[in-house]
Write a protein that binds this DNA or RNA. Structure first.
Lengths: 259, 259
DNA sequence: GGAATTCTTAAAAATATCTTAACTTTGCGG
DNA sequence: CCGCAAAGTTAAGATATTTTTAAGAATTCC
């Protein structure tokens, strides 16, 4: 049995072996938490701090504005039902010029129409009560998204198109082309592929993929992920049996080959 | 996936060549169940015991504190609505210093805002009535998560690329290159090599290697390790008979030459 | 409300990996 | 030179993991 099957070029040059620039930011961002209930704000702060994020708190719209003016913020977590609602719209306005990811927090009991309207300007929203892990997952997801849109300050404005060899994933148009040929992806397929292509060369376990894409804690066997992987392979690989892009690392997980 | 490898495990140096404490924990943890309803506590205990966990019960906050003081606990399952609620916040405080995973259990009917506030300090929560399997899955997920964090916290975060002469092990992409040529490793091979390359020049006995990689007490199967060593040599050495990197120290063990 | 698409689940088939055990080589002291 | 002990080799059988299939649920789209 040939043990020495070669994998495609994997950079081992020391300096680019570390995380893609964006990744560091996903784990290392400054987040503004806006909630009039100080206890909740504190709780969210702790949660995020534990994940390594730097947290700034604000208890109404005005404070939020100030915080935004004085700090470079990468993401905003916004409770929708604050007493001074005007602060909200002001924040929204800020976002229009700064294009920072905004995640709305709302209680399920609240008037859904209103939430809909307000959350239109946001990127995501969660309803109370929420699973702490889910909040973290969504925060990460948004940071990742904005990260490679290049809209969060710092980094060089990276293209909204992720490329690996003949694969070309337009994260704006949500469209994939393989060697120029457009290929249709389902929602889950897209998300999985985006996750992997955003971090070329990084191995994700089925569980990690599940958490990142489904935003749930995986329980019960995760064959689901594998089935999706297979379908993606069917679409992007010439020969799914011998994948060129979407590789498996035995006993560990999957990755998109760095090409 | 039974074992979802994290590369951090290799970080253990000479003196703790045996398992980092956290590792055995996923399948072998001590769990504190806090619920004022003794029947439910008992039921949860049985459920977890069946999975091989050691369970300690407490029926209010004070008892929980005592249990925490007297035992090494790896995870807490906490019913949120106990009569003596103060015990809860005390428990939360404990956690701040001990950083133990906490899973909140709450009834759906309970006030969601309150739950939110309280549960923010927690890592996950489930609502009653819950699926027993789901509870178990979440427990495992949390243990795994913390285990991972623990590993990172304990050892200094090692570089993501380990180099020794022409060997280059990318712990992120789980990929090895020998003089620039990518080489495929199996899961066990990878783990062994990572262990050795994380500690260049340090000699590990076959037993130590077995314990570190297999997470089991070796039972006179030293040959197994040797067979793996040989296969690794086959992949990384020009001439396996005269190894340049993976050396044997007679009567003691193996090491990766410091180059 | 029905058709089409997508997702999930479970189980089989296909592979890859691990372990075992018997055998071979090597180093070293007598 | 012989024999013991430690290390190395090999290959086949046992295990474990991944891939494939397919069918039923769930969802989405008219």
């Amino acid at each position: 049995m040939p043990y020495n099957t070669t994998q495609a070029e994997g950079g081992c040059a020391v300096e680019n072996a570390k995380m893609p620039a964006g990744y560091a930011r996903v784990d290392n961002a400054r987040i503004l938490v806006v909630d009039d209930d100080r206890e909740i704000a504190m709780a969210i702060e702790k949660l995020l701090a534990r994940e390594g994020y730097e947290v700034i708190k604000a208890y109404d719209g005005m404070q939020a504005l100030e915080a935004l003016a004085g700090n470079q913020v990468h993401l905003i977590l916004l409770d929708i039902m604050m007493p001074k609602l005007d602060g909200l719209s002001a924040t929204m306005k800020i976002r229009e010029s700064r294009n920072i990811p905004i995640i709305i927090i709302s209680a399920k009991s609240e008037d859904s129409d209103k939430i809909l309207g307000l959350s239109m300007g946001a990127d995501d929203y969660v309803t109370k009560p929420f699973n702490p892990q889910e909040l973290v997952a969504r925060v990460k997801s948004q940071l990742r998204r904005y990260m490679h849109l290049g809209d969060i300050a710092n980094g060089p404005k990276s293209a909204s198109v992720l490329r690996t060899g003949g694969l070309c994933l337009d994260t704006e148009a949500k469209q994939l082309t393989v060697d120029g040929e457009p290929v249709k992806l389902t929602a889950k397929e897209y998300k999985i592929l985006e996750l992997l292509m955003s971090n070329p060369g990084v191995v994700f376990s089925a569980e990690q993929i599940y958490e990142a894409v489904w935003k749930e804690v995986p329980y019960s066997v995760e064959n689901t992920v594998m089935v999706h992987i297979r379908r993606i392979r069917e679409k992007i690989e010439i020969n799914p049996k011998e994948p060129k892009y979407l590789k498996v690392v035995w006993g560990i997980g999957y990755k998109i080959e760095k090409i």
